[in-house]
């Protein structure tokens, strides 16, 4: 079982091991702004959790709380069985972090960057070289290992950043939007890499704006908004619950779109704007009367996680 459960204090019976990450009632304020507002989240060991949510939802702040680079104002956090921030150093030793913001050392070469982190992560001297070689290979940068980072392309830097967080074979990796700015081939390669990590038993917490990425990689997803989880479950469960099976898209002038929205809403069906069209979700539950009223101009398609995302987090950018 890999679905997220709302936390009630008890673990699901039969799940033998402790969760790799558990947050309970975590609050983090920056002055008047509450970035994380009573967050409950649990990531089972060996699973991949996709953290979704609009800009400013608190995803990166959550990641920083897990490494004790942010200290919560309330709540408890445990990572790999260590209480954080109290025992965060042990936790950090066993996890890898790929930050949203590139913080490679631009003056050093790709190899030197990895060498420094191999030592910061305390890989024994005799295995450091092999670890660095493996990381370079992972990032497809073996040929470019002697290039200074400021001369690497954006995608190469991203790959190096990911490889740096994996250089010590961590038990847990935090990936904050790992595939931003990568071309489709490299993104697919990294998906393979992340999938491989999970198959090898590594726990992955990954934030992303690429819905497809979450659908492909995550065992379960948590949808964050305004600092808390507003929905969670496997991608399929989330889609079924919040968007149904099918969606019909209606195109037309603004007045027509407003009319479609009004009709659907009265019938209790969720809608979302999709650029020039309105999508009516849970279309399979539509009463025949509404189908008739909406007219035959609807284009039917399968419901997606993106529909869930937009419906639950609101359409407007705040």
């Amino acid at each position: 079982m890999t679905t997220l459960r709302p936390m009630t204090g008890a673990r699901a019976p039969g799940s033998g091991s402790e969760p790799a990450i558990s947050l309970r009632g975590v609050v983090k304020r920056f002055g008047a702004l509450t970035a994380v507002a009573g967050l409950d989240l649990e990531v089972p060991t060996g699973s991949c959790l996709g953290l979704l949510g609009p800009n400013g939802a608190g995803k990166s702040t959550t990641m920083r709380l897990l490494t004790a680079q942010a200290i919560p104002d309330a709540g408890t956090i445990s990572v790999l069985g260590y209480e954080v921030p109290g025992q965060s150093k042990q936790a950090r030793a066993e996890m890898g972090v790929v930050p949203q913001q590139d913080n490679l050392d631009e003056e050093l070469t790709a190899r030197e960057n990895l060498e420094v982190f191999a030592q910061l992560y305390r890989i024994p001297r005799r295995s450091r070289r092999a670890a660095v070689d493996a990381a370079l290979e992972r990032a497809f940068l073996t040929e470019r290992q002697s290039t200074r980072v400021d001369r690497l392309s954006g995608g190469m830097r991203r790959r190096l950043l990911i490889a740096r967080g994996l250089v010590h074979d961590p038990r847990l990796v935090l990936l904050d939007e790992p595939t931003v700015g990568l071309d489709p081939q490299v993104r697919a390669q990294l998906w393979g890499l992340i999938d491989g990590l999970r198959s090898a038993g590594t726990t992955v917490l990954m934030s992303t704006h690429y819905i497809e990425e979450a659908e492909r990689l995550a065992d379960s997803c948590a949808l964050m908004s305004h600092g808390r989880v507003i929905a969670s479950g496997s991608p399929a469960e989330l889609v079924a619950e919040h968007a149904g099976a099918r969606v019909t898209e209606h195109y037309g002038p603004p007045a027509r779109l407003a009319e479609v929205e009004e009709l659907a809403r009265t019938a209790g069906l969720p809608t979302r704007r999709t650029g020039p069209s309105v999508s009516v979700l849970k279309a399979e539950t539509m009463p025949p009367s509404l189908t008739a009223e909406l007219g035959p101009d609807g284009v039917s398609r399968a419901a997606s996680l993106e529909d869930v995302f937009v419906v639950l987090t609101g359409e407007r950018v705040e």
Partner: peptide, 14 residues
């Protein structure tokens, strides 16, 4: 500027 310390503090360094 370089956020090097952010990177270092994510490793077992206080």
């Amino acid at each position: 500027f370089q956020h090097t310390y952010d990177a270092i503090l994510a490793t077992p360094v206080d």
